[in-house]
Design a protein around this nucleic acid. Structure first.
Lengths: 200, 200, 200, 200
DNA sequence: TATGAATGAGATTTCATTCAT
DNA sequence: AATGAATGAAATCTCATTCAT
């Protein structure tokens, strides 16, 4: 990579990191492009050389952060060869994700209300980043080696992700209807039930 | 009610209705208080006599609209005496709600990403409106006459609502991962499974 | 005084007292008529039954408060029969006023930048209040019994008041160029000098 | 100075000049930032690139205008080598300042009630403008070459400035208690007396 | 007399976007 | 490629004043 290319990547990353900090601390509405540029140490005009607008950088970040969490989770899973059933694997990943979001509430706020199957698909397909992964593929792999067959693995994953992220959101941020520690057993049971409901 | 009081109620309702129209058609961000006031036929300052700011009226509307849908659903249920099991009742309500949201996509957008157990609790408790209902109570009633007992009915309802609203959102608005008609059987099966997972 | 008259006086006083509190704590600009009316426990419209606008009540208060301080000072002087010369009397009053203003900085702010010979004259002449006094007359009396004659007693008083209030203002509020305790000897000496300069 | 820098200076000056015109003709309260920007021929937002708010530009102007008057006065004094004593020099400057303020009543209104030792000190020290002078230094120089020594020259100057500006204000603007021409002899006598009171 | 809902002009302030350098 | 001054539309919110009750 040429020096110029490196410099550009550095600027882009500075903008992404700063935007994430500001979005999570102040929210999308109250973060201005000026804020981002200033704190990233570049001129306001420079922002437009890298991103279309605030919403562009916002969408890219959501997909990036979400896929990063799933990558961590699947990486962690790969060092647990004792976990073999699809059910157990998904519960492991789900618990891992819940823990991460519980520890970083601003990340939770950032992702939960913005994450959607549609956004994901779009952004990940368009993404040029080599480090972002298409986490759906990772999940689908889980099912391919299983003894049990499932009706529609993609739909199953979709339902689980929506279920986990929306229940975790309310619990972690508002403690409603239970704290996340008290809620987790209910979530786990429900995930297992949802999975079983799709087993052929 | 005095003439003045009637007038005030009329103004307040005009503001609420107009705000809902604008929020659903243009979104919260692109709706200004000027817009709301102007289209409601009142002066800008009048808005502030009734609501603190845009977010105040927004929150009140979410709770109001959501409780209104549940009221319709439970009303409809009461004219089906043949539906007796808790499972069937919840599926009926859930399907009813999905249909309403599918027919009114702007209502879906408005509610889904904003509805949260915490917001609900606050707003409904504070609400003086006689027409708003605390839908949690309605749900809890469903369980009280059942043969089966459930571990924690409130948590169960919470999980179902989160599950239904988040999966419906993606499906109806983006057709992902399936159209709502194709997805519904999966949702129904999963709801039944979630319920059974909590049966004692 | 009839009951109705008493009630009106009470309202008027409530408005005056509240306005003073707000003017001294928040300043004229940031005090609204709504604020005053609300905290005085009357309706907004009622304010206009008693005062023309914010500036009307403001002017009345300045004159009222200033004359009240001078009344206190001259009352105090009357219990010191040992102070006989014009010079000593004026120094006594001046020191008294400085002490009052030093103890109540908000009163100082309120009066100093607003007090002016012209405002005083106008307001006191128009004032219907029986408790407000025309402090100029009180001062002029000081001179009438003196052995020494002065060129123009009114001008002399004017100069002393302006001198004392403007130097005290800076000293008490900003500690510049000296604290009021350090500055007082300079002020006293200067007052005596100003007086002597007018002796015939 | 680059073209951009020149342009910036021009804009800043346009804002300062316009603000002064409006403050003196309409007063601080009735001058809006919109007014200033519009009449200065810049966009409203541009105002905020140069000044924090209305009060910021106001303070800067007071110090700037006051120091400008003193500069004129001391410049004029320097062409009168026949005036040698401290007393005579101060009277000369004082009379000069009174004349300027008498000829420009809006300047008088602008400065008198806002000028304060504390504000001055702050603004002049912070000021980067090469044309603003710290007039206190100029005054202190007057004393350094004098035969007579004075107790505390800074306090003496402070008292004279406060005395002159506050008495002139009332006289010029309201003609109270005398016209400025009739009052001047009293002021002069008093200044001399104040000075003598501090001679060691 | 007293009220307080309603007004709507207008003030402050922000900020995405452009463009000359 | 990078800058950052300038723009000006637009948003929020305040508040003196009126007037029907």
């Amino acid at each position: 990579m040429s020096k110029v290319e490196q410099n550009k990547l550095q600027k882009r990353n500075a903008l992404l990191n700063t935007a994430f900090e500001l979005f999570t601390s102040k929210g999308l509405n109250r973060t201005s492009i000026s804020d981002i540029a200033e704190r990233a140490g570049v001129a306001k005009g420079t922002f437009y050389l890298y991103f279309k607008d605030k919403y562009d950088i916002h969408n890219r970040l959501i997909a990036h952060k979400a896929s990063s969490i799933f990558r961590q989770a699947t990486d962690a899973l790969s060092s647990h060869p004792d976990i073999t059933s699809v059910e157990d694997k998904i519960i492991f990943i789900s618990d891992y994700v819940i823990d991460v979001l519980n520890k970083d509430k601003s990340l939770l706020t950032f992702i939960s209300k913005n994450l959607s199957w549609g956004v994901f698909k779009n952004v990940l397909i368009k993404s040029k980043s080599e480090t972002d992964i298409d986490f759906r593929e990772v999940f689908l792999e889980l099912f391919s080696n299983s003894d049990v067959t499932y009706r529609n693995p993609e739909v199953l994953i979709f339902m689980i992700i929506e279920f986990v992220s929306s229940t975790t959101y309310s619990s972690v941020l508002y403690g409603e209807p239970l704290s996340i520690n008290d809620l987790k057993p209910y979530i786990d049971t429900s995930i297992r039930q949802i999975i079983r409901g799709q087993a052929l």
